Simulated assay, not measured.
Amino acid sequence: MPNSLPMALLPFQPLSRSMITATSSTCSELFRPRTTARIGAEPAAGNDRMAMTLYGAPLSPFVRKVELCLRLKGIACARDPVTPFALPEGYERINPLKRIPALAVDGRYLADSAVICRFLEDLYPEPQLIPTDPWLKARTGWLEKFADYELAPAITATAFRHRVVLRSMGSPYDEPAIAAALAERAPPLYGYLEEQVDGRIFLVGDRLGLADIAVVSQFMNAAFGGESPAAERWPQLARYLGNHLASEPFAGVFAAHRQMVDKMLARGH
């Protein structure tokens, strides 16, 4: 797998900083295991600051979705980078489904990235990542679900799990079968997103939101697995992804996670 960005994800015009509200946390601070971010956001009125720990491996697109919400909102949170392949004993008490991510909040636990992100939005409403307008809020929920339940199994898991995870472990995988599965399942999903982008900078409304975070996070992992929408066939989607992957809050995370993937693959040879 090449180290360079796939052609369809080459950066176009980066988004200006004025379009995105983000904190100045560095990637090393963001993903350092079992530490607490230095920046603390102000909670909504009536809520005291809470002690939080996020459980999950940073290369998971679902963990990354929560990480980006934490970063954008400047929420202080410790990290425990557990992986689904080596969960600590007793993790089922945190999440009975034994999945990541999970969030500990003052000794209580939440599971599922969508649930966690909505909790963070309610607790720390600024910057707003989920619109309050009923239609835009519903659109955000739908596109997040589309990313989690359609893009993830059809594209992300297919490309990333086999071409990165299994390959890094030295396990065999059927590349022709993977390529055939992607060729069959990806085009309808890319086509739908092509229509949703339709010249927009953001999927919902006029600012970066949870819908963008969920979708772009999945395409990061797909890119690590050598899969991306062809610019000549899906130009709107390719432009949208290129813009976001070249801009914060995604660019630094994308580069840092690319380095992690490269190290994984180097160890697998």
Rank of each mutant, 00 (worst) to 15 (best):
L143M: 10
E150W: 14
D133K: 03
E126F: 13
R139A: 09
T140D: 13
D133V: 07
L120F: 14
P127R: 01
L136W: 04
P153L: 01
W135C: 08
F146P: 10
Q128P: 11
A154K: 06
E121K: 12
E150L: 10
L120C: 09
L120M: 10
P127N: 03
E144C: 03
K145I: 03
A147E: 03
P153Y: 00
E126Q: 12
G141F: 01
E150G: 04
I155D: 05
K137A: 15
P153R: 01
A147Y: 07
T132K: 13
D148Y: 11
A154S: 14
F119P: 00
E121L: 05
P125G: 11
A147M: 03
D133A: 15
E126G: 04
F146S: 04
A147P: 05
I130K: 08
Y149P: 04
P153I: 02
Y149K: 06
P134Y: 14
K145G: 03
L129K: 08
P131I: 04
D122A: 14
W135I: 12
G141M: 02
K137N: 12
K137I: 01
A154M: 04
P125M: 09
F119K: 00
E126D: 15
E150C: 10
F119E: 01
P134V: 10
T140S: 02
E144F: 05
P131S: 12
A138E: 13
D122G: 15
I155V: 09
A154V: 00
G141T: 02
Y124I: 05
E150A: 11
D122T: 14
L123M: 09
D148N: 11
A147C: 07
P134R: 12
K145E: 07
R139K: 14
D122K: 13
A138K: 11
P131N: 13
F146H: 10
L143W: 13
Q128E: 14
Y124A: 02
Y124Q: 02
A154F: 02
Y124G: 01
D133G: 10
I130G: 12
Y124F: 15
T140N: 03
A138R: 14
I155Y: 09
Q128L: 14
E150R: 15
L123Q: 13
P153N: 04
Q128Y: 08
T132L: 13
E150Q: 15
A147D: 09
T140M: 04
W135Q: 12
K137P: 06
L129I: 08
E121C: 14
F119I: 00
W142N: 05
E144T: 01
A154G: 06
P134L: 08
D148I: 01
L143T: 05
L151P: 03
D133C: 05
L123W: 13
L151S: 04
P125T: 03
D122Q: 15
L120K: 04
L129G: 12
E150P: 07
D148Q: 06
F119W: 12
A147I: 06
I155N: 11
W142E: 07
A154I: 01
A138W: 11
D122S: 15
P127H: 10
G141N: 09
P134G: 04
E121R: 09
L136V: 07
L123S: 15
P134S: 05
F146M: 08
E144H: 05
P125V: 05
L136E: 15
D148W: 04
L151A: 02
A152D: 14
P127G: 01
E126I: 08
T140G: 00
T140W: 03
L136P: 02
D148T: 06
K145M: 03
